[in-house]
Amino acid sequence: MSVVSHEGALGGRIAVVAGATRGAGRGIAAALGEAGATVICTGRSSARADAPTRSDYDRPETIEETAELVTSLGGKGVAIAVDHLEPLQVAALAERIRAEHGHIDVLVNDIWGAERLKGGPAEWNTPIWKLDLQKGLRILRLGIETHLVTSHYLLPLLIAKAGGLLVEVADGTADYNAQHYRISVFYDLVKHSVNRLAYSQGHELAPHGATAVAITPGWLRSEMMLENFGVTETNWREALAERGGGRHRAPPDFALSESPRYVGRAVAALAADPDRSRWNQKSVSSGELARQYGFTDIDGSRPDIWRYTAEVREGGKVADLADYR
């Protein structure tokens, strides 16, 4: 059965998006807001002077901006500054949610923060003995330990009532990652682990009537990605043209990139589906869920770069990029 997430579909639901400052996390929070949910937006980048810390990126985006976006789209956004590597801060978050709401309907583990640590293409495929060990271990902490700490303290709130949904935000499906080396030993381990976390936690959540799913976006037009190509969400297609002024030109398959709202609508569609348990322990992409549920990206298209990669880039099929948008 297909269920298209629509305005108000998640009214009354309580969601937590851990890592909601920017990128996929902000897109997911926004889409949950579109569907009417109350969205608790956590992260380290806060406009508050007394916030515990800043993210490793030290960028201008803040969780307060994300919360305001949620509210402007029809939900209720709540910003809470949390460093998910600090168990006491996550425990305090859990106690606040328990006191104010009593439970969680949707928990999204989108914490990452290691985009700069993994380096650019020139540094990819470097063997472990040539990598900076401390940077590599930091990648593991940011990409795996944060998820474990968050689940430890917040999953009791998710199983307080039947029907809860845990989403682990991945990069690549379990099937894809099992067959492909991903950038470095450290990055590869994190991206395998996030998918496996959905599988293992789904095993533990099922007896409580809850569901865990790993979802990967495609080529995400995050704030950092757009900045890298010298464009904005409004004019992102200009990155595909010949560039001047020192700006980078995007490769052709950037035409299949997606806004962060697309993976957000995938999460919202899952949360609105009364039969979502059929996805328990699965690893899926935003494009696959768009085909299942019928939602679109903000421009009305349904990009699916993972299917394009499998069928055309690696499968030898002859097709136009437009066939996958």
Rank of each mutant, 00 (worst) to 15 (best):
P121H: 12
T234R: 08
A51R: 14
R243D: 00
E204F: 09
A239R: 03
L157T: 08
M224C: 00
D304I: 00
V169G: 06
M225D: 06
T216C: 10
V185Q: 04
G25Q: 05
L133Q: 14
S5M: 15
V4S: 03
G300F: 09
M225H: 05
E65A: 15
I111N: 11
D299I: 03
E288V: 09
D273R: 01
A174M: 06
V231D: 04
V70F: 06
E288D: 08
Q89S: 02
S286H: 10
L69W: 10
R261Y: 05
A266R: 04
V17T: 08
D297T: 10
D110A: 11
A160E: 15
I139A: 08
S200W: 15
C41M: 02
A290G: 13
T66W: 14
I63E: 07
V167K: 01
I14D: 09
E258I: 10
C41E: 01
H147E: 02
F186K: 00
R116I: 08
R276N: 15
R138Y: 15
R48I: 13
R54D: 11
G75E: 07
A92F: 02
A79W: 12
S259A: 13
G19F: 07
L289H: 01
E258F: 11
R98W: 01
S286G: 14
Y293S: 02
A290I: 11
R243P: 00
L155T: 13
G143W: 12
D56T: 11
D110Y: 02
D299S: 00
Y57H: 12
G300C: 05
K135L: 12
W236L: 03
R98P: 05
G315A: 04
R302S: 02
S45I: 04
Y293W: 04
K76Q: 09
E115Y: 06
Q134A: 13
A114D: 04
V90A: 07
A160L: 06
V194A: 01
L73I: 12
A18P: 06
A15S: 15
H6E: 07
Y262F: 14
A268P: 07
G33M: 00
G143I: 13
A290F: 10
E7R: 15
R278F: 08
V78P: 06
V263M: 12
V3K: 02
R138D: 15
V78W: 09
G246Q: 00
I40K: 02
